[in-house]
């Protein structure tokens, strides 16, 4: 198991390194001169040269990349001309727009996506697995067809349409929930919950369909297997067979998928955030991309990549934990 974890970690690191090279390449692939973008519109030639020097753009590309990587681990001091600014590790530079450190901007927004991801995951897992089992108990029966139909309808609805519908129903017609704004959990848990309920529901409804299908298929596949026949032959009730044993066979797949999906939401739920006006990473990404705020874009991309790779690593480990046969590998 330790060897397995170690190997998994090494490959995750390798992917991250490759990705950071790719992401750093963004600076050079984007049209325009980063220094010009950083300096702003009214910027004369000497100022530009100074900015270019401060940003290290006058050095070789390898040296620049090295600075980029090393500042992630040990920080980096910027020469602003009037003095030096220390950017502590993990340093991702400063926003062209606001001059704020990118790391701080990301840390400010991460709790929003963390709340979004965890809350919606609880919901979609409950809905998906619950209704998946409900459907699998009587395959091809009426309730199986109905649940599958409803789930597929939600899965096929674009998130922004669903979000809009939820807003209209809950906030306009019934007026039972406030128009969502983000309230940190630490500030007021009740408000936090109330405001996030609709975004959670939106993500969960769109995502749950996949989990329903996976649960249903996994359970039905298990039901045909020999070890399930053994349980039946030894007098286990059909209910217990399905709910305790057949679902076990679907778990590794479900956990793997959940880890990856949670990673995906964490890394920025662009549509959800925009529709519900939540100040998360997705919204920041859109804004920064519009403003060609390269350090922020790079920072988010790197963070997103990190989160998704971490989620995948977690998924692999979960799989090994849940399926004893994999542990040997």
């Amino acid at each position: 198991m330790t060897v397995f974890l170690f190997r998994r970690l090494l490959s995750a690191l390798a992917v991250l390194l490759a990705l950071s090279i790719l992401v750093y390449g963004l600076f050079y692939l984007m049209p325009g001169d980063p220094a010009e973008l950083a300096c702003g519109k009214r910027c004369d030639v000497s100022e530009l040269a100074q900015v270019r020097h401060a940003m290290g753009l006058d050095r070789s590309i390898v040296a620049q990349f090295w600075t980029f990587i090393s500042s992630l681990f040990v920080g980096h001091s910027y020469d602003t001309g009037v003095g030096t600014t220390w950017c502590s590790a993990p340093c991702l530079g400063f926003s062209f727009q606001s001059n704020e450190p990118v790391t701080q901007m990301l840390l400010d927004r991460l709790p929003v996506d963390l709340s979004l991801a965890l809350g919606s995951a609880v919901l979609w897992l409950a809905l998906g697995i619950g209704f998946g089992l409900f459907a699998a108990l009587r395959p091809n029966g009426l309730r199986d067809r109905m649940t599958t139909l409803v789930a597929m309808t939600f899965s096929a609805t674009p998130l922004f349409v669903l979000a809009l519908l939820l807003l209209i129903v809950f906030c306009v017609w019934w007026q039972v929930l406030p128009f969502p704004t983000y309230v940190p959990l630490t500030q007021d848990p009740g408000q936090w919950f109330e405001n996030l309920l609709l975004p959670w529901l939106a993500i969960a409804l769109v995502t749950a369909g996949n989990y329903l299908r996976l649960t249903r298929a996994g359970v039905l596949e298990s039901l045909g297997q020999d070890h399930i026949r053994t349980l039946r032959a030894y007098g286990y009730s059909e209910r217990r067979v399905v709910l305790r044993h057949a679902v076990r066979g679907a778990l590794p797949t479900l956990a793997t998928m959940a880890a990856v999906d949670i990673g995906g939401v964490l890394a920025g739920a662009v549509f959800t955030e925009s529709m519900f006006g939540l100040p998360g990473l997705g919204k920041l990404m859109v804004d920064s991309a519009n403003n060609v705020d390269l350090p922020v874009v790079t920072g988010i991309t790197l963070l997103a990549a990190f989160l998704i790779i971490a989620a995948n690593a977690v998924a692999d480990v979960l799989y090994a934990v849940l399926d004893p046969r994999v542990r040997l590998a």
């Binding site: 020999d226 070890h227 026949r229 053994t230 039946r232 030894y234 007098g235």
Partner: peptide, 20 residues
């Protein structure tokens, strides 16, 4: 009756036990 009165063993010992 199943198991208690009539117990059964199968042809496929490799897959007839719960792998988990």
């Amino acid at each position: 009756v199943r198991g208690r009165e009539l117990a059964m063993i199968f042809q496929e010992p490799l897959t007839s036990l719960d792998p988990y």
